[in-house]
Write a protein that binds this DNA or RNA. Structure first.
Lengths: 240, 240
DNA sequence: TAGATTGTTAATCGATTAACAATC
DNA sequence: TAGATTGTTAATCGATTAACAATC
């Protein structure tokens, strides 16, 4: 009896209440696993070992096994991982199979680009509508997605049960627009405005995109490289 | 004599040869410091302590001091940090003051959006040109940036000394286009194609952007939250 | 069964935090 | 000088890697 309770307790702790105890380092790697496994699946490969996947992805086999085991035993000793099964499991974990509903707010260049990509549908996310203030776009369709006036945003989100709001509005409008969505029950904000949204509602998840930070990281590396080359040159001429 | 050598050695190790030993965790935080300090500068604030900045940014004061000290002693005991000075120093570190030259390859929706933002000029990066294959855009200007045919890409980069190539071409073309740029002396690739560029030339730095991964991370968090709410509901009705 | 490879525990490594002496 | 706050060393924490028993 004791052993049954123990096993059950362990099971529930690890699999039923999954989420809170998984570190963000692991979570951030999940989409990448998903990507590589999707690729392998399309290639028709059936199984893969942690060793083989590690070489492909530039990780250690140990880390892969450790990562996947945060969510359950997806592999099989002596065999490895069934690619289709593992890909499916990770899809579930990531909510790809949940068909989340999204709206894009801001029909500028970036909103336009996001309306056009297949990035959303590939990940099971439906884009229901775009919203903007400009009268010349309101009422049109972009990539077959209807554009409504921003005054309808709150009602629309409430009515349709929108999960994700994509923010591509100017910095100044971001806070106001996100408040409207949060009040209408939107639980996730994908924020492209160049500022960090501070939302006090703990039920709301914000994912900030800072393209500018990424550009600067690249610049930093380029600069370090250039400095090093310069140092080597002058070092050579001086010391030899 | 020994002490002078020792001091000099320490100095050179820490400040002259800076770069290689700074962890990527620190480097990734630099653009964020730069952003916050720029904001404070615009507000006209003159000085800030690590404690105050830590509260603003949601870090520990200890970490801020530790981070900044990887690059030099930018503060002053009993006073804190001079915002203008510190912002300037970080700008230097990040190469904002170096006026790096960039080209954007791919004049689709994303290329269009990147041509239109002020993201580059705000960070001291010049966009010299766009490149595409489509005859109807070649020869035009987008946001005052000229669009050339991709056949001219290599010569242009070599002639102008382009530092950064921004890749917004379809996945299939990414490898080929990046090869052309690398051969023409481009040292940094900002890659928006949905694949990880593998470039064997160690002199070239690649910064991959995976918007899809970010979207999936958001989806994961939403799913965890939803699952938890569901579990709480059923738990309540069952146990009480 | 023997071979392979996972799941998992223990060891290592690195990054963050705490503490405090140096110093403005 | 006294007070404040950095720069830096030491302690803690967490994440990665190594190792190996479990098991297919």
């Amino acid at each position: 009896m004791e052993s049954i309770d123990k096993v059950k307790g362990t099971f529930e702790k690890r699999f039923a209440m999954k989420g809170p105890q998984v570190s963000t380092a692991v979570i951030k790697r999940l989409p990448r696993y998903h990507r590589y496994l999707g690729e392998l699946l399309r290639e028709g490969k059936l199984r893969i070992s942690s060793a083989e996947l590690s070489e492909l992805m530039g990780l250690t086999a140990s880390q892969i096994r450790q990562d996947l085991n945060c969510f359950g035993g997806f592999g099989q000793q002596g065999y490895g991982y069934n690619i289709k099964y593992l890909h499916g499991k990770i899809s579930e974990l990531l909510g790809v199979t949940d068909g989340f509903k999204a709206v894009i707010v801001g029909a500028g260049n970036l909103g336009h680009a996001l309306a056009t990509t297949h990035m959303f549908e590939r990940r099971g996310v439906q884009r229901l509508a775009l919203f903007d203030v400009k009268e010349d776009v309101v009422g049109t369709r972009i990539a077959d997605i209807p554009v409504y006036h921003i005054s309808e945003l709150g009602d629309f989100c409430r009515r349709e049960g929108v999960d994700i709001g994509v923010l591509t509005v100017p910095k100044e409008a971001a806070e106001e627009v996100s408040d409207i969505m949060v009040n209408a029950g939107v639980t996730g904000i994908w924020n492209f405005a160049n500022m960090e949204l501070k939302i006090d509602d703990p039920r709301v998840i914000v994912e900030n995109i800072h393209l500018g930070d990424s550009l600067l990281t690249l610049c930093y590396e380029i600069k370090v490289k250039k400095d090093k080359e310069k140092a080597e040159e002058s070092g050579e001429s001086k010391n030899e």
